[in-house]
Nucleic acid binder design. Structure first.
Lengths: 140, 140
DNA sequence: GCCCTTTTCTGGAACAGTTCAAGTTTATGC
DNA sequence: GCATAAACTTGAACTGTTCCAGAAAAGGGC
């Protein structure tokens, strides 16, 4: 459904270009991919896109709120299509795999800081650290 | 109290060296500093330390659990002396400032993933995103 | 206190991911 | 279709981090 993705772009006043559609499609089909993988996925459709274009597009889409940038400590930047639901992530310390986790309680009771130090908080992010099933087996 | 810091090192079977003491002292006095700042702080005492030594030390201390590495999306790595308390961080989107936040509820009700996808979770990290007082004023 | 072994540090170079800049191409509105 | 402004291509620069080889220093035994 390319027109669907095009509509998303128009909704945020961004021009509809081949690279942007390809990036959106890649993120839709592959959640939590790093920039390098995005470039590879996009080039499967459009061999001529420069990595620059991908960086530009990811920035533009992030700024527009269509995709979300996630970057666990030490790893390279990853992106996911912003579904609008406030889910969180569980990251494998060993292999870096990322899985989605729905917010446990629904209304996030502890996601309001007890003492905000005068900060204006607009988002609370939760990252669970652990070991994925595959890596757990390897260890055991 | 250098001997205090030395004791921390000995407790985790690390040799007591000048650079390590300087890094520990720097982190104790300046929470949430980035690597560059650590290097500057250490060089205030020991002008000859290489950046390499600081990286080595930070890695060693992180592995030993004496310091904690925090790296909000897009920013460079920062370190803090690990106090053992499970506090979280509030990060300014504008200037990158970081403040400590005590865990709001004490017993962290939503810090257990609802569906762990088979992962073995050993830590839940919370990052609040917002705008610090100084930057808020600048905008207003 | 001195020597030996092992760890750690110094200095320099390499590397990955990301960003910057100039010029060309492409999408959009008329 | 045409003009204009945004987006893309190419290529190089930059930052933060890591790798490597040799020199220095810490810790333990004598």
């Amino acid at each position: 459904m390319p027109s669907d993705l095009a509509a998303q772009l128009r909704a945020v006043s961004l021009r509809v270009t081949r690279p942007r559609l390809a990036v959106l499609a890649a993120l839709r089909d592959h959640p939590h991919v790093d920039t390098d993988t995005v470039i590879d996925l996009v080039r499967a459709d459009l061999p001529m896109v420069s990595h620059q274009a991908v960086y530009n597009v990811l920035h533009a889409l992030t700024a527009a709120g269509l995709v979300r940038r996630i970057q666990p400590a030490g790893a390279t930047a990853r992106y996911e299509a912003q579904a609008g639901d406030n889910h969180h992530h569980i990251v494998c310390r060993s292999c870096g795999a990322i899985a989605d986790v729905a917010c446990a309680t629904g209304h996030a009771p502890c996601l309001t800081a007890s003492d905000d130090h005068g900060f204006v908080v607009d988002e609370a992010e939760v990252v669970y650290w652990g070991t994925c099933p595959a890596c757990s087996e390897g260890i055991a």
